[in-house]
Design a protein around this nucleic acid. Sequence first.
RNA 1: GCCCCCGUAGCUCAGUGGAUAGAGCGCGGGUUUCCUAAACCCGGUGCGAAGGUUCGAUUCCUUCCGGGGGCACCA
Length: 543
Amino acid sequence: MTGPKAEVAAALEAAIRRVGADGELPDLELARARDAVHGDYASPAGMKLARTLRRRPEEIAGQVAAAVELDVAEAEAVGGYVNFRLRPEWLRRLVREVAGQGPEYGRSQLGRGEPVQVEFGSINPTGPLHIGHGRGIVLGDSLVRTLEFTGHAVAREYYVNDSNTQAKKFGESILARYEGREPPEGGYVGAYVEEIAAAARKAGVVPNEEALRRFGIAQMVERLKAVVARLGVRYDEWFWESRVWESGLGQEAIERLRKAGYLIEKDGALWFAPALADENAPDEERVVIRRTGEHTYFASDLGYLLSRFEARGFHRVIEVWGADHHGYVPRMKAAAEALGIEPDRLVIILNQLVNLQEGKMSKRAGRLVTLEELIDRVGPDAVRYFFMSRTPDTMMEFDLELATTQNKTNPVYYLQYAHARLAGIERFASGRADLAAEADLDLLGHPWELDVARVIAHWPEVVETAALKLEPHRVPYFLYELADRVSDFYEAGNERTENRAVVDDPALTRARLELCRAARVTLQSGLNLIGVSAPDRMDKLEE
RNA sequence: GCCCCCGUAGCUCAGUGGAUAGAGCGCGGGUUUCCUAAACCCGGUGCGAAGGUUCGAUUCCUUCCGGGGGCACCA
């Protein structure tokens, strides 16, 4: 636990000990208070302890609150609850600290340098990315940013399928275009296939399927790189499936499973049957080597597991998949287990599918829109924000009409505007020569000032939760709340000139500027995690 | 048939074992000589249903109903 909550939790427990509870305590459910009238943190400690202490909840809460010794917050009992309110003095110290740290505020060493790989976006490199892929890419990248920020050693990886059935069809399609034929049944027909065939001819690639496939996939990888770069995403590694076999890891994985008794021959094919060696294992059999002698995608995955967990030494691998692959999860877990890899080290995050609603924009219902088109229409910031504002667990309606027409109604601009306003204030004040170097933060006392600090105080906890639960979608909601408080602060100045940040009094101005900076860098810190830009100014909208 | 996800306001979605369940959009009304009005203020019905666990369930468990997805020698 980090931030003020850790201190509150410790003080609460100490107080409970003082009022006579010993042994193991129940979960005190200390959490952010839902309602601001209950302070910043609240615990139903009275109810929790009523049975063991054999006293009334209100009585217990009262005694506990009185026994709390805490610098950061004051405790108050209401009913059976113990509520904590962060003290103004502490909030003022926090403002100074955050303003000094800048956008690094919230960074931690939670991960202790754990080597983690996040593999995401790995679609077959045989066609353009579409909107649904964008969700996994944005999620994966934001996960990486969150894990990096919390002290993990993270690598982004794209697994390039270059030797599976789809890839071969792609190669055949290029060959067909190269030779002026139509692509085969079930092949790829987009204009990009013809472009690649033309490029291959120009580059002097020999016209056979394998050479053209490799050439074509390399071309596609370049295209993919360019598209994801527009979203601020770059990969550390584009790992080609064929490397699994060239390095011998695929063969090694199969050999290891054979020795351990996990493989069985049936119908001329080689099957992985985990229940053979372990009767508790899932009872599902999967082909590893086809009757034709070709390996399956699953066989490559076996070697790929060894590559990551053993050859490259990642302690944890996080995969982001579309929900349509969920049936593959037990198989991968079973494979990891059979290879001697603790299955919990393989984390698979499924993101539900994206349903496109085009509204009145297109009469052609269900038309596939590419990720690139989406970025063209709504811009990278809105794309990232829109995808990040939802848990991966729920199916998502992408209302293209709204996304396209929404400009000032899009919440992402609200966050950015809050940042731009703060930057504007700092810019406005930058000409003042009478401002002291050091701010006297005791001058901050209005509720709308301290409430900004109050939200800022929660940022480290939000980051920590997002990292531990692998849920970066928590970040935009925090940012929205902060932007709200910032707007209140700003509006106070619109109501009364004396409440503006920049006033005649240089000392007061200086103190408020410190608060502006603390809020701005916290916004920046959060926007960084979700990959949305934090502009210093935003142009006025035309009517 | 089996497996996974979801069901919260008109719409799109957050959220939590506890105190009066939130936001955005949409709709109606109001606010600008003032650090950017992409802002602010005012206005509303809601946790699919039934059981169970619990001092307390929208949250956890079971069943049912509804929506989406998956069950290949495709990936």
